[in-house]
Amino acid sequence: MTEKVKIDVRNLTVGYGDYVLLHDAEYQVKQGDVFIIMGGSGCGKSSMLRVLTGLIPPLKGSVVIDGTDIANASMEEVQKIRTKSGILYQSGALFSSMTLAENIMLPLQQYTDYSPATIRELASLKLALVGLTGFDDFYPSEISGGMKKRAGLARALALDPDIVYFDEPSAGLDPISSHNLDDLILEINQSLGTTIVVVTHELASIFAIGNNSIFLDAETKTILARGNPKELLKNPPNEAVYKFLTRGEGK
């Protein structure tokens, strides 16, 4: 049985104005993948994520998500795709004027017809799923960085998305919190069947969760390698990838 392609990136050029970060990128993310976008600083990982989520338009090429090319789609179509996607930002990006529960309730109030009581229960459930039971009425400023990320993840999961994007999930976390977040990502992937796209350069996370990946190179502005990160480490296609995956040891 062929696996369904969730994201199909064709001939994609990413950049800002005349400044090209990455050109002619082509890759596919299959349903249920934990797909890693990796590479050194400044190679365009986060910009790639911004293109995938429709925050910035590509300079060229197409990003087809569930059959819709978001680069050429109408606002309504993009909106439809967005409601099926969740994003966990580097900082959690929780709305500081709202409690954790209110943060999660926001997309539910906007896009569902549930009663206020059900929405409140759903918010509590999502918080419980990420290990934040009882933190409903806490404000983001009252919790730790790791908890903020978990709460951000709970909000990303609010609408039961098909795809969840993670932007540097381990950034700013201690090794244990980072490991716990990796476990949580895998649990969500396995128990909910959610496709996961992670932008990271954290090697421990890459090897722990990724089953498919691309390696972006800042120098050539291309994708230098693709495949399972563990396989890439065993059979590195080039020196740059091997250096990255071995923390600069080289052959």
Binding site: R50, L55, Q79, R82, T83, A93, L94, F95, Q110
Partner: peptide, 16 residues
């Protein structure tokens, strides 16, 4: 500050 904290991106991607 919401822009710096990516909260505006979050709003946009939530379609709000």
């Amino acid at each position: 500050t919401m822009q710096v904290n990516e909260e505006l991106d979050a709003l946009q991607t939530m379609g709000m």
